[in-house]
Amino acid sequence: MRRSQLSFLFILCGIILAAAFPNAYAADAGFEELRKNAAQIKTIQADFIQKKSMKILTKPLISEGRFYYTAPDSFRWEYLKPLKSIVINHKGQTKRYIYSGGKMVEDQSGGAQGMKVILGEITSWMSGKFDQNPSFKATLKEDTYTQITLTPVGQNMDGMLQKVIITISKKDAAVKSVNIIESETSSTVIDFKNTQTNKNIPESIFQDIE
């Protein structure tokens, strides 16, 4: 379970990191331009609202949180509601914290090896290389919004992920949402707001959990 769980989280983080390069897509230049401009992004921070839809739910389950990234590989993905949890990746170490007994405690259920493998897998996304990860096929669609669709190649994500649609505003080139479609009846939409890039993020964000 741990590896699957963390795979999903890191896929999610990787997609969002890759998608959160606002200026990268402004020039309508395709994947190569996107990759080139991604290198200019040093930090990203944003609030997010996650809407989980499933057949069993008559209305989506709403989660809220905050996300921080500092190049090259520090990130903090934090849920504030309804269940507090934090994943921090910093200086080659990845830790997950859950809320237990009135405080945040480190998740000790293992999976460190799985994390390393998965982190390697998403490095290309972090570099804005949508079209260079052999695990996904990437396509572009231009409409009112720009849409990047990532479809898993092969069977290692069967039952976990069908496709991911990243929607980018043409007006301000900011990422509007990420739609993770797991199956016909299950999807996760993450809407971003208050996105800021290249604004200083203290290192303590990746060290302190409170």
């Binding site: 769980q5 999903f8 989280l9 989980k52 499933m54 993905w77 269940l83 949890s85 993770i180 797991e182």
Partner: peptide, 15 residues
């Protein structure tokens, strides 16, 4: 009974 377990991140583990 219908039930599901999912991670905080939204991944469905069991349904």
């Amino acid at each position: 009974i219908s039930c599901a377990i999912m991670t905080v991140e939204g991944m469905v583990l069991f349904e």
